[in-house]
Design a binder for these strands. Sequence first.
DNA 1: ACTTCGATGCTCT
DNA 2: GAGCATCGAAGTA
Length: 210
Amino acid sequence: MPAAVQAGEPAPSHFAGDPVSIARALLGATLVRVLDSGERLSGRIVETEAYDCPRDPACTAGRFHAARSAEMAIAPGHWLFWAAHGHPLLQVSCRPKGVSASVLIRAIEPLEGLGQMLTFRPVTRERDLSNGPAKLVYALGLNPAQIAGTRVDSPALHLRPAETPLADDAVRVTARVGIKEGRHLPWRFTLRGNPWVSPALPSMAVVGDG
DNA sequence: ACTTCGATGCTCT
DNA sequence: GAGCATCGAAGTA
């Protein structure tokens, strides 16, 4: 796994690489959000997916000659938002400018600021707070216009590596959720047995074990 | 300006 | 598990 995600300060340059490896490495890391007020919200990343144009048939941008401009224009190690069905989805760019590839953060387990998150996103069942890619964006109070294009080590939103490396058997590898093409690719990573993983089921049998 | 589509979420059964 | 609300981006004109 990329050394940058194991320890130290995950700087943008460390996210230039294979999004599949980086998606696996980001599992277990902590996503830290600092509000304008100074209040700190955080959550453990329990679900990620990789998208990698042009080899990835599920990457919408890869089916066209021109990828989505915002994604194409961004350098590695920066936050970006993919819009789907009217919802913003948080991603980390992984390839040089002009190449569309990224890691989608699909679910987090709340660690700090649970009360504030519930204010941003009121839910009846606490479990539904951040167990989906758009849900966590709302729960953290992320404004795409403010965050998109900023570095992954920005004060307002940054990453903190997992303190202890994840054992391989703690990671569940499956097909990605909600796509039509590329279902055969095992590019979704979840923490096995974690209740904060999104309820969406993979459209294909579990890879590796289940 | 208009049309289509989607890496979703919510609200019912 | 099925139906729909929703809106940004891309394509078409």
